[in-house]
Amino acid sequence: MAKFLLIPLIAYCLIVAALVLSQRHFLYPAPPAGGGVPIGFTAIEYPTSDGLTLRAGYRAAAPDRPTIVYFHGNGADWQSSVVATDRLVPAGYGVLAAEYRGYQGNPGNPSEKGLYSDGRAAIAWLQQQGVDRSNLVMIGNSIGGGVATQMASEGAAAALVLISPFNSLSQLVAEKMPWLPTSLLLRDHYRNDQKLAEIDAPILILHGDADTLIPVGHARQLAATNNAAQLEIFPGAGHDLAWQDSAERRVLDFLNGNAGKLTALENPSE
C-alpha cells in the first residue's frame, strides 16, 4: 500500500517541480521573431532601466490627438498591436506598439517586474519625443492588461482600456490548476484587482462571454473595483476579441466620448 501511495506522490512532486522551474516559459510563450514594419509605422528602440535595448513600433499622433501605448498579450507581438489599432489610427490617434523583453528578438527574459520596466521605458521614450504622460492612453490585451494597469496606477494614463483581462494572474492560475499550491509557487501575480481601484482616469473593460482562456467573470470582478469603470460584454466573443472590429469600434467610441476629459487632463490649468 505504501508503494502505491508513494508513486502518485512522487509524480505530483515532479509535476510541481517542473512547473516551478518552467512557469515563465508557459506564461510568456513568445512567438518566433519575424515580421516586417507595417506601413505607416517606424521601427524604434528604447533602453530599459536594467540595461536592455528593446525594439518596437511607433506612429505619431495627429496634432492635438492622444497617443496610445498598446501592450499585447503573451502569445503575440508588437505587429499584432498594429492590427488591433487599425481603426484608431485613421482617427488620428498615435500608437506606440510596445514590445517586451524576450519577444521579437529582444534581449532578456520576460517576468512581471521586467514587463513593468519595459512599459516604463516605452513611456520614457515618448516623453523624449515630446509626448506628455498626460496625453497617453494605455490599452492592454490579456496579460498586457497587467502592464497597462500598472502604468496607469503610476499616473501615466489619461485613460485606460483593458481587453480580455484577468482579475489577477494569481486567481486565474489557481482556477486553472486548483490541485496545485499556486499561491506559494507562482512568481508573477499581476494584481490588477488591487490597482484598478486607485486609478483616477476613464476606464473601459471589454470581454467576450465565450472566452475560455480568461473567463468573463474576471472582467466583472475588475469592473466592480472601480465605480467609474465601464464594462462591456461581447456575446459569443472569445479571447481574440482585441482584433474584432466590434471591440475596436467600442474603444474608438470610448475615446471619442471622453475627448473632453482627455483634453482637460492635457490642460489641467484650463
Rank of each mutant, 00 (worst) to 15 (best):
M1A: 15
M1K: 07
F4W: 13
L6K: 11
P8L: 10
L14I: 14
I15Q: 05
I15M: 14
A17F: 15
L19P: 06
L19G: 15
Q23N: 08
H25N: 14
H25T: 11
P29M: 08
P31E: 01
A33T: 12
G34F: 05
P38F: 01
P38S: 02
G40N: 06
T42E: 12
A43I: 05
E45C: 01
E45A: 14
Y46R: 00
Y46D: 00
T48C: 07
D50Y: 11
D50C: 11
R55H: 14
G57T: 08
G57F: 15
G57Q: 14
R59T: 14
D64R: 11
D64K: 10
R65K: 15
P66G: 04
H72F: 13
N74K: 12
G75A: 15
Q79Y: 03
Q79M: 10
S80V: 15
S80H: 13
A84E: 10
T85N: 14
D86F: 12
L88C: 01
L88Q: 06
P90G: 04
G92H: 04
G92K: 04
V95G: 03
G102V: 02
G105N: 09
P107W: 03
P107L: 02
G108H: 06
G108V: 04
G108E: 06
P110L: 07
E112W: 05
E112A: 05
E112K: 07
E112M: 08
K113C: 01
S117Q: 15
S117T: 11
R120H: 13
A122K: 01
A124N: 10
W125R: 05
W125C: 02
Q127P: 07
Q128D: 10
Q128R: 14
G130R: 06
V131Y: 06
V131R: 04
D132F: 01
D132G: 12
R133S: 13
S134A: 14
N135E: 10
V137N: 01
V137Y: 03
I139L: 09
G140P: 05
S142K: 02
I143M: 12
I143G: 01
G145L: 06
T149G: 04
Q150R: 13
A152N: 06
A152I: 03
E154D: 15
L160I: 10
N167L: 09
S168M: 04
L169R: 05
S170Y: 08
V173M: 09
M177R: 12
P178N: 08
W179D: 00
T182L: 09
S183T: 13
S183H: 13
S183A: 14
S183N: 13
L184N: 08
L185E: 05
R187Y: 08
Y190M: 07
R191C: 06
K195A: 15
E198S: 15
I199T: 00
P202W: 04
I203R: 00
I203A: 04
D209L: 05
T212E: 11
T212L: 11
V216W: 04
G217S: 04
H218R: 07
Q221P: 00
L222K: 05
A224D: 09
A224V: 03
T225Q: 15
Q230I: 13
L231M: 06
E232S: 08
P235D: 02
G238E: 02
D240S: 12
L241T: 03
A242R: 06
D253I: 02
L255C: 02
N258I: 06
N258H: 15
A259F: 09
G260F: 10
N267V: 10
P268R: 08
S269F: 13
